[in-house]
Design a protein around this nucleic acid. Structure first.
Lengths: 197, 197
DNA sequence: GCTAATCTTGAATGTACATTCAAGTAAGGG
DNA sequence: CCCTTACTTGAATGTACATTCAAGATTAGC
């Protein structure tokens, strides 16, 4: 009965993600998005409402991805403590390689936007809460496996881990040395483990 | 031989700090700065070159302040380990009060600008390095006082502490609960202390 | 009280931007 | 093959902004 859209929504979101991630929200112009996605302003606005609408979908998509990764890790075989270490190590590797000066889209967005846009702030806070819960599950597993003591609450320990993850996402912006990054991972693991008793 | 300036440079910088801190660099217009400082565009440009020049002076001023605080702490009486805990606790108190959703001007600026402006990025990296050194001195003191083991390098442990400080500056943007914040401080202290042996 | 030097004022300049909209284009049912 | 419905195009709109500049104001030495 009507003409069908020529673009694929996921492809557009993925391409928009790259631009927002590299430039931040404020510095990304609609023109940049037009170039990156191949959609003209009219189509972009018809599909996403406005720049902010597209951005919200972008951060949702991004967080679903990361959350999925942590969830999948939980189902994978191996000790949970090793999985946690592996996750941190991966962030450290990216930071050390200098590839990832972009940091984390969520952290970038949180710092840039939370004071200025209540909708974006709320969305990001929700994502953070879900991510913490995912880490808490992993920590609970490590507690039942005996690698972390049960005297401390898993949710609170998850906040400690998350805090260091966010820290690393800030650190990577100032090209830190490898030894320091390794010391951070070591510090986190000791901070977790020493609750064993 | 010539007319003298009517404004006080430090006052202008302090007022500009407030605006940049609340709004970020990109969202702060020169108009905002004109309102906040009382200087007209012409005077502002004569005194600081441009918006970026003023911002550079603002972050220098801000960091001198924080660095001075850590330096003064070192000369104060008491155990260094307690001083470190006190510093973290202060950030936690601010975050828990919800006063300080502004976070840290340096962290905000690092995330907003490091990818887009090499001058600002370099300046901030320098400040970070100096801050880490200040923490390393405090940790060295704690090592000689016997509260932290000497098997691990003080600079690397300082990175771990700094990492958590940066993390807290991100955390405070999503209104975290008190218990989690306390758990973070506890995690850092255990991560440091467990090196004692 | 004149001159030279500097500061202050605020309107003007030019650019970049988010968003809108009217005209053109495809697709499928009748 | 026509009509309805929806998508696409890209120029137009209006606003917000960083920076400049010419005209006026203030100081200190002479």
């Amino acid at each position: 009965m009507a003409r069908q859209a020529e673009f694929n929504r996921d492809t557009v979101i993925t391409r928009a993600t790259t631009v927002f991630w590299e430039r931040g929200y404020g510095k990304t112009s609609v023109g940049d998005l037009v170039s990156a996605t191949g959609l003209q302003p009219g189509s972009l606005y018809a599909a996403f409402g406005n720049k902010k609408g597209l951005f919200l979908e972008v951060i949702d998509h991004y967080n679903r991805g990361f959350l999925g990764k942590v969830g999948a890790l939980r189902d994978a075989p191996g000790r949970s403590m090793d999985k946690l270490e592996g996750l941190l190590q991966q962030v450290v590797d990216d930071a050390a390689a200098g590839d990832d000066e972009r940091g984390c889209l969520t952290v970038n967005a949180l710092l840039e936007m939370s004071m200025h846009d209540a909708d974006i702030a709320e969305r990001l806070r929700g994502h953070n809460a879900r991510l913490r819960k995912a880490f808490a599950w992993l920590i609970k597993d490590a507690q039942t496996e005996g690698d972390i003591g049960t005297t401390r609450d898993a949710n609170e320990l998850a906040s400690f881990v998350l805090n260091n993850l966010w820290g690393l996402r800030v650190m990577c912006k100032s090209r830190p040395d490898r030894a320091s990054l390794d010391a951070i991972v070591e510090g986190v693991l000791k901070g977790l483990r020493s609750a064993t008793n």
